[in-house]
Write a protein that binds this DNA or RNA. Structure first.
Lengths: 186, 186
DNA sequence: CCTGAAGACTTCAGAAGTAAAGTTCGAAGG
DNA sequence: CCTTCGAACTTTACTTCTGAAGTCTTCAGG
């Protein structure tokens, strides 16, 4: 029998404190408190993505497809966006969007048609099936997320949300949105 | 002239509160507080990775290569690991590691040689140049991270680190490390 | 009208990942 | 000793993404 092909996407990592200690050993100038926050953030996020990924597999869609569903649902009825808009919102090249949409059309999650009022444009629209899929993912994701934050007190949740929002604002203002504000798109 | 090819990897996203509001509109059962924490976490992490990526481009290495450097540095002298260990630690397939190591050997960041005491094994070792690269990335990353957390009070940093650590522990214990504990590897 | 430029999407080639099959070496039993 | 199994890495086929070139549509001038 050949090797069991260890399932990837689930990293085996050192204990967090051990990892921080290693950084201090190799790079003494580092601030352990800062490094702990940043490292925990990255690792937490990675694990969450693994968890989402597993749930999505059960529902028969990929993480990439989920992103598209989310973007379409968020804009609201009639759940339409162009490939270019989608690409900007997801941070992908237009070429990648073309392929993703191909797949998703094949799976019946979205439709693609030319905009008859301006035949250069293409309209990608969520199907009922696509919307239903998104609802299913939301149910699973919400359950996972509730469970994840279960041990936090309401005060802790509030303060966590507030601090993260502040950090996000800082980084998003530092990092201009690669040419053109989102408001231009709607 | 052809299209300017909008630079990807920097998503244009809705305001965080607007996104949460959209989720509530489309899925009223969602807990906005929970969703805010989770969404901010994901978006923050993504932006941080974009920021790291830009710094790495300046230093001439990719994010993937950075991961390998980190893993080797963290184990300490003599900075050696096998491809299989590396793959497990990074959450990749062994096949992907083979290719990554190929590239990194070509760039002089690591060496690859057979273990003479057991010729099935291969030893990947950080070169001096690789270690120096890692130190450079650390300097830039630490500066970025210090700046990111600049607005937080020491108490906020401490509590953020503590809460994130707790969440990480929860998710890591829920999500067994795909076959085999890390302790078996050293 | 016709032409040229610009915009929006798609197509094509190359990079990097996964899954599965293949190769090589070491160890254990007859 | 020889054979067979298992472990560790590599190879192959296929997927998905990026960057650059290509196609089609619209619009502004001549």
């Amino acid at each position: 029998m050949t090797a069991a092909e260890g399932s990837p996407a689930t990293p085996q990592e050192l204990d967090l404190d051990a990892q921080i200690a290693a950084y201090q050993r190799e790079f003494p100038e580092v601030d352990p408190q800062v490094e702990k926050v940043v490292t925990a953030l990255g690792r937490l996020n990675r694990r969450m993505n693994v968890a989402y990924g597993r749930q999505l597999v059960d529902l028969g869609i990929s993480n990439s497809e989920w992103e598209v569903l989310k973007a379409l649902v968020v804009v609201g009825r009639p759940y339409q966006l162009g490939p270019g808009d989608l690409a900007k919102r997801l941070g992908l090249t237009p070429a990648a969007m073309t392929h993703r949409i191909d797949r998703m059309v094949g799976e019946g999650l979205v439709t693609r048609e030319r905009d008859e009022s301006n035949r250069v444009r293409v309209i990608v629209e969520l199907t009922d099936e696509g919307r239903e899929k998104w609802l299913q993912t939301m149910r699973l994701a919400a359950a996972f997320e509730d469970d994840l934050l279960q041990d936090l007190t309401p005060e802790e949740r509030g303060s966590l949300g507030e601090i993260l929002t502040r950090l996000l604002r800082r980084v998003e203002s530092t990092q201009p949105d690669a040419g053109g504000r989102l408001e231009d798109l709607d």
